[in-house]
Each structure stands twice: as C-alpha cells, then as structure tokens.
Amino acid sequence: MDLQPIWLTLKLAAVTTLILLLVALPLAWWLSKKRSLAKIIIEAIITMPLVLPPSVLGFYLLLAFSPQRGLGHWLQQTFNVQFVFSFPGLVLASVIYSMPFMISPVKSAFQQLPASLSQASYTLGKTRWQTLWHVLLPNIKPSLLTAAVLTFAHTLGEFGVVLMIGGNIPGVTRVASIAVYDAVEQMNYTAANNYSLVLFAITFVMVLSVFIYNKYQAKSPLE
C-alpha cells in the first residue's frame, strides 16, 4: 500500500488543527461575549460549511483562487503563491471547512464559564489576555481537546472540498479519502479497503480517547 496519501492526510489534519487553534480561540472568545448583529452574521458565515455541500465550497474557492482571475491572479503575481492544486490550497480549504468544528465547542465552553471568573481576574488588575490565558483557557481544557480532535478527525475525512481545489496529484494533493475514491474507480478494492481501514482506525481511536478523557472530566464529549 502506498502510504503517501495517509501521511499527507495526517499532515493536512495536523496543520489545519494547529492553524484553527490559533485562529479560532480568540474568535470563539470574542463570539462568546455579548451578542451583536455583526457577530450573528459572522457566526452564520462560519457555520455555513456545516450545511453547504463541500463541492459548492470547493467550487467557490476554486474560482476565488484560480491564478487566471482576481484574487488568485494577484496572489500569484505578488507573492508567487498558488492555492489551486497545491498543498497550501488544501490547508486553506480545510481551515474554512473545519472551522465550525473548532469554533462551536470552544465558544459554548467559554459561554458556560461564569462571568464572575473573568470579573474576579479583572478586579485583580489582570488584562483581558492575561485572564484568557491564565483563567479561561485552562478551565475549558476538555472542550478544547474535543474541538481539536473533532477538527483533526473531520479534516481526515474531507473529500469534496479538497478534490475541487486540490485535484488528485500524488504526493501533493492526493489525500487518503481521494485515494479511496481513486482505488474504487480503478476497481482496486483491496487498496480502497486498506486506506479505509486506516482512516477508520485512526478516527475511531481519536474519538474514543476524547470520550474516555471527557468521561473522567465529568463533561459531555460533545459539549
């Protein structure tokens, strides 16, 4: 079995999860505070990948980042960066596609913390960032772990969106889910089964670990 698609998938999932941890934490914190119309609109946009067919998202990303037009053309000319049919393109698509899986659990965890925790920290003279780092984040650890694992596992299973923007280039954009599809197309059911089993095993172990960890934290794994 060619392991390259598996490694590429794991790399994509790890990079996506890392980027989303950095981007989504402050965003989820901001969204968890007082509601406003702007926040509701932003939250709706972030949630769209949950309900939108992945091929639709992939199609618009393909249009947006095509080197022949607008933004994609400008990125290529100015920074020599090409998102279409490249690994960075897969990362970008995965970050957008998996964002609700990171934002939602983290945001609801922030909302469940009593407001008095932040307030107590402020009265001790601590800034918002000190409060976030020392008080809020340590107290939502189970939800953070759940969000990171869900994001990672969800990225492992991406198909439509990565196929649209990345295509099927071995070693570059050919992730495991595409390798499964490709093998079935070629009637190579053994290879398809091998890739599928590896994906199934990895995701099952990850999700099971989170459920077990959260059981000892006395929290719902899907909180």
Partner: peptide
C-alpha cells in the same frame, strides 16, 4: 475607569474561584 484601574478588592457571592 476599568476594573483594572480601580483595583477594588471584590468578594463575589458565588466566590468566583478559579477551578484550575
């Protein structure tokens, strides 16, 4: 002025202790 600038000692009714 912000709570940080006022630096008032505040005991919350629900204690507001940090679980971590």
């Amino acid at each position: 002025l912000s709570p940080q600038q006022r630096r008032v000692g505040f005991v919350f009714q629900d204690y507001a202790l940090f679980p971590n």
